[in-house]
Design a binder for these strands. Structure first.
Lengths: 199, 199
DNA sequence: CCTAATGTGTCATCGAGTGTCACAATCTAC
DNA sequence: GTAGATTGTGACACTCGATGACACATTAGG
């Protein structure tokens, strides 16, 4: 078995098919809408069977959100790498601000975020995975050496940070010319907690 | 047509059937779990056809969350009724604190909240409807006479309040003996924004 | 090259949700 | 009351996302 380095033919073709499926699906979604596009449509357009589609993406939503969820790992790592003497809120603001810039770096990611914002089913799924991510980020905040942060407070700060990000994204999705990074920064300023959670 | 006052036989039986379906469904859900219970099961137990079930509740989730969504109106009204010179954050804390007490007043509501917290599909749906509610609450905050509050800031505060409530509920769902009202109060204290949004 | 592991298509099935149609119950008007 | 429009209901067929089973092909590795 070779996961990661030295992919091997199997792993290589698998990734290629996944990427191709992802491209095909996003194309159909943006043209006909997410709901109006059936898994059969995607599979047919990609030249595989419906059953095989589900072998690459366990759920239809995954074809849109799979890589987004991988981005979660970066957020967790980013938080863990922040200086211990920084206020947790600033750590979250910094990491999620970077995240916002990452989203804007490619037009594909931008288009995807707009699709998600405009599709209730995808937004719901995003909420679900973000719940998971929030828990991990809260853990990362607490588990750094030399940090004594109440678990409940960590969860609250993380949830509020997610709320800031969410509100900023939503606002941005309504206005094509809006500056996402700026909205995120302002959101974190407005919601900065008064309680000094760290000296 | 008679909606509201003077129900008439039609409306009366409709409400009775809805209530009966709701009871039957909640009973099956708590015994076998939400996912393991099919709509056919509920319909059979209530003595109606599957097709008729969907005439009372457009979606399976509605049988759990329909009245919860009605509660949203109260929140909006509560916010609108708050004194204008009160800080928005305090208004939200007060209204949602009352909401938490309302939930705890009946064992049925408590059991329902626990079911929702323990079922991903229901949590996702709750998120969706809360998005809608958040927007309405933000509007209510802004639209009071004599209040000049930035729309974006109102959305942020409302989203943060929802995050506080959500984190408190989640924490409460994990600990049978926890005090929901106390958790909500503490959550609002921790997240109180430093920025003075009102003089 | 031979074999065990893995990928794929086909078929069947489940469960949520919807359209249709015929039939029965209710409401309204006379 | 009864006639007729309205509305609720069951039954049937169907769509679509998702899963299990099986046969067949391809690849990995000794």
């Amino acid at each position: 078995m070779s996961t990661g380095r030295n992919p091997g033919l199997r792993e290589r073709t698998r990734r290629a098919v996944r990427a191709e499926l992802s491209r095909t699906a996003m194309d159909l979604f943006t043209r006909h809408g997410y709901e109006a596009t059936t898994v059969d449509d995607i599979a047919a357009a990609a030249g595989i069977s419906k059953r095989s589609f589900f072998r690459y993406f366990p759920q239809k939503e995954d074809v849109v959100l799979a890589d987004v969820e991988l981005l979660g790992d970066e957020v967790v790592r980013g938080v863990a790498a922040r200086p211990v003497d920084e206020a947790p809120w600033d750590s979250l603001a910094a990491v999620l601000g970077e995240w916002a810039e990452g989203i804007l770096s490619t037009t594909a990611a931008t288009r995807r975020l707009r699709l998600v914002e405009g599709t209730p089913a995808l937004r719901a799924r995003l909420h679900t995975t973000r719940d998971e991510l929030r828990r991990r980020v809260a853990t990362a905040l607490c588990d750094r050496d030399g940090v004594t942060l109440d678990r409940f407070e960590a969860e609250l700060l993380t949830a509020a940070a997610a709320a800031a990000l969410d509100t900023a994204s939503h606002r941005w999705s309504l206005d094509p010319d809006a500056d996402l990074r700026g909205l995120v920064t302002r959101a974190f300023e407005v919601l900065r907690p008064a309680a000094a959670t760290l000296e």
